[in-house]
């Protein structure tokens, strides 16, 4: 179940998302230019985050209607994103982050519902890497949703103080991602090991 081509693609998408998150945080922590233009970088990260996570769900959820909805919502999101960020680069756009989070939250819920409807062999299993990734995303969205809703009402000082929530949720999410990747590797190794060697020792003459 976890080893189809689409699933592997999904894991790669999450891997790139983690790398993008790491680069963005690293850049913000080390570069002076980045600290000065951090809102601009956050907006860019929102764009990357939304794109990768919606693509992950596009790969994971196989329902045609959901895939179509993801494409339509993504087009709307990109149009709104570029029209809102055309003028003002140095202000954090809380609205777009909120929209992105809500879409990801809805996709997480759709994922659970679609899996619960499937036959038992294909349904949710706590030790399924894909399920762990979705849990990680759900927890991340749950932790940061309210912060993104009110981010525009916070002062820069408050923003810096409360941003710690995002950092903690990032740590939690990355721990769960790592667990999922390790589980995937472990399960793949296990399934690659031959279970039995059925060798027919009887000679053709004995049959």
């Amino acid at each position: 179940m976890c080893c189809s081509k689409t699933h592997i693609k999904g894991f790669w998408v999450i891997f790139f998302y983690s790398i993008a998150s790491l680069i963005s945080d690293g850049f913000l922590a080390t570069s002076e230019w980045a600290t000065e233009h951090k809102f601009f970088l956050w907006n860019i990260f929102t764009f990357v985050e939304y794109s990768l996570l919606s693509y992950f769900f596009y790969l994971t959820i196989k329902l045609r209607i959901v895939r179509l909805t993801i494409i339509v919502i993504s087009i709307i999101f990109y149009i709104v994103f570029f029209s809102l960020n055309r003028t003002n680069h140095d202000q954090y756009n809380s609205f777009l982050s909120f929209i992105s989070e809500v879409v990801i939250l809805a996709l997480c819920l759709i994922y659970f519902i679609s899996k619960m409807k499937q036959p038992v062999e294909d349904s949710i299993n706590i030790f399924n890497p894909e399920f762990l990734i979705v849990i990680a995303l759900l927890l991340y969205v749950a932790c940061t949703l309210f912060l993104f809703i009110i981010a525009n009402h916070l002062s820069v000082k408050e923003m810096n103080e409360y941003w710690i929530i995002t950092n903690y949720s990032n740590i939690l999410t990355n721990i769960l991602f790592s667990t999922a990747f390790l589980l995937y590797r472990y399960q793949n190794k296990k399934s690659a090991t031959p279970e039995s060697h059925s060798v027919d020792y009887t000679s053709p003459n004995d049959r």
């Binding site: 659970f112 309210f146 009110i150 009402h153």
Partner: peptide, 27 residues
């Protein structure tokens, strides 16, 4: 605003954990 943020986040977390527990038990 901080109160909204605090209780909102706690509420969302509680809902999420509840949902995960429910799904696991149901499954």
């Amino acid at each position: 605003i901080s109160m909204v943020l605090f209780f909102g986040t706690i509420g969302m977390l509680a809902l999420t954990i509840g949902l995960i527990v429910f799904i696991s038990f149901h499954q």
